[in-house]
Write a protein that binds this DNA or RNA. Structure first.
Lengths: 344, 344
DNA sequence: TGCATGTGTGTAAGCGCTTACAGTCCAAAG
DNA sequence: CTTTGGACTGTAAGCGCTTACACACATGCA
């Protein structure tokens, strides 16, 4: 990337303004002139410098995304949906992981200087900085965050589906429940799930802290819980990874799932389907979240829309075997119609 | 991001050159002057425009990455390692997925205009364009590709570990094998694995085309294979996702793994550990690949090194239960010492 | 006192584009 | 034969920085 518009102009025997117009199709250019320009462009293999274009246009044609960590399928899926749509809209995607980073503020500010708008997960960016970004006019879309003024928010529904899940488990006849997944920040996804199950199960469920949403933490929390007295009959986990940890803990302790214990997850990641027993879980439309975020951002950036919007996407209860036997569809509730692959 | 260096200069009562010097620490600035500048910067909340800086400096402080798809854990893990190190080195990461994209060339060229160097997976970028990028002086690092001049390459070892895996299976006494994972481009990872197992098993193994490296394709290929006559005793899969598909197919057909059939994967993704039976596989250091790519790129960009380098990282055979019983460590070979989590 | 060194600062020339504005030219209308 | 309005094209002013170069002013030392 070395040859500039000047060399093209010189070779074609025209001014740089004409080259620019010929290439972008803004303003009239005689057919013969255009040809000369295109020929020169071809011969020199010219590609306009992105920096020059951006500086002159005053836009980056790029979107940012800030996530805590890409470990685990959730963020990856959202990212995929995001990148795909952003690319369709002619925008590059610049990523930033905050996991284990000091100086998050600086990193986010740097990112802000490279993009026209950004997608931010939950509370990965400190509140004062968010306020500042909003004030500076940066276009923002949040996923899994309570609505705020000056930015879009997007999430998938939690409370009602959590209630539905809880009711399903209650229908199995379980009476002592545990919820694995604290700590929960107010208004965060997991907190909403907790509120949802609690509304249905009331005092029959207790919350257990897992510190992080990982297999390891799920394993440890579940092991301690299951070793103690008053072992629950069903463990509702904040997400699939914690649930996978719980399955491992049960296996370790010689407990049969779902015989001695029911376990459920949330998200419907790939491993949920492959675990044995396969995980009953709540599928949320991860890619769709990313895709919508990209579109929302585009609307805000192009000013096709000015008022922020707050969307909530529906989820789907996916019943598999980890929550108990389902005579009507046994032995593999996720295998109906002979197709082991549920629609995505 | 609105206030420019001019406003800062004016407010501090100095020239923009002084502001720049004060901020970057290049060139002498009197202590009192520096204070005035910093105060003005503070008050105006000034952040230098990335575009201005990049244009003047002639560099982007950003790295690109081109991958086919982020679905599945492999690319994600590499990306994570890459982003982490790139960020440490002060570089942003711009991503580009080629999955399902027409006009890959344009997208890659656009990317090239935004970054100082890029990491490219395998053969996601057409050869002529690669040559052109090299010619233009773009710094490139490839993962899983045969060495070429003018760029670094990086891969993890395949052939020897494939041989080790095959030998292990032969040790179980199996005699009829299948390899699930074609089509294989010459010199690609999967081809090397095939060469490796074949060198050990010779005519006892046949290759089966799966079209794609997905659970779905693995399932279909395995089902067809297992339904046919002369069913193999062991299926060596090109990667874990194909292997997970094979496990599902076996379950579908009522075959016990490892009783009736052994199955192995490659990569050691999360689901491999959680599948039942847990997958015997070959772990490759995915994050490390990404991290090294970022470092290699940095060396090339900063010209700390001029000659391309070709690295190969070691892998590790991870024996679990899907390949057969291992009396000495039964029932869960990956659970020794009471710890269900193998070191990563 | 005179001159070589620094030190501190400003001026201005880029970096590679886009685009408002100001021509130039020519065919059609009067 | 003038006007007039398009169609084209060029000039030049940014966009927001960095930095070479020049200059002004103190020092230190002979």
């Amino acid at each position: 990337m070395d040859v500039t518009i000047y060399e093209v102009a010189q070779r074609a025997g025209v001014s740089i303004a004409t080259v620019s117009r010929a290439l972008r199709g803004t303003g009239p250019v005689a057919a013969r002139t255009r040809e000369k320009v295109l020929k020169a462009v071809e011969e020199l293999n010219f590609t306009p410098s992105r920096l020059g274009v951006s500086l002159a246009e005053g836009r980056h044609a790029a979107n940012g995304i800030v996530f805590p960590d890409l470990a685990g399928p959730y963020y990856t899926e959202v990212l995929l949906g995001y990148e795909e749509v952003a690319s369709e809209l002619g925008r590059s995607v610049v990523i930033l992981s905050t996991k284990g980073r000091t100086r998050v503020n600086d990193l986010v500010k740097d990112l802000a200087g490279r993009v026209d708008g950004m997608l931010i997960f939950g509370h990965t960016v400190p509140e004062p900085l968010v306020a500042e970004l909003v004030r500076l006019g940066m276009r923002l879309v949040f996923i899994s965050r309570d609505p705020l003024t000056g930015a879009d928010t997007l999430r998938s529904e939690n409370r009602a589906s959590a209630g539905e899940l809880a009711a399903h488990l209650a229908g199995h006849g379980y009476e002592r429940f545990a919820f694995l997944g604290a700590p929960m920040a107010s208004q965060d996804d997991v907190d909403e799930r907790w509120q949802g199950v609690r509304a249905v199960l009331g005092g029959a469920i207790e919350a257990v802290d897992t510190r992080h949403y990982t297999v390891e933490c799920g394993f440890e929390a579940a092991r301690d819980l299951l070793k103690g007295r008053g072992r629950p009959e069903a463990i509702i986990c904040s997400d699939d990874e914690v649930a996978l940890g719980a399955l491992l803990a049960a296996e370790e302790l010689g407990l049969s799932v779902p015989g001695d214990l029911a376990v459920t997850g949330w998200d419907d990641i790939m491993a949920a389907r492959h675990a044995r027993p396969a995980l009953t879980t709540v599928r949320q439309p991860m890619r769709e979240l990313g895709a919508r975020a990209a579109r929302a951002l585009d609307e805000l950036i192009t000013r096709a829309r000015d008022l922020p919007r707050h969307q909530s996407l529906p989820t789907e209860l996916v019943v598999r075997s980890s929550c108990g036997d389902h005579p009507e569809t046994s032995p593999s509730p996720d295998r109906r119609a002979g197709d082991p692959f549920r629609p995505r």
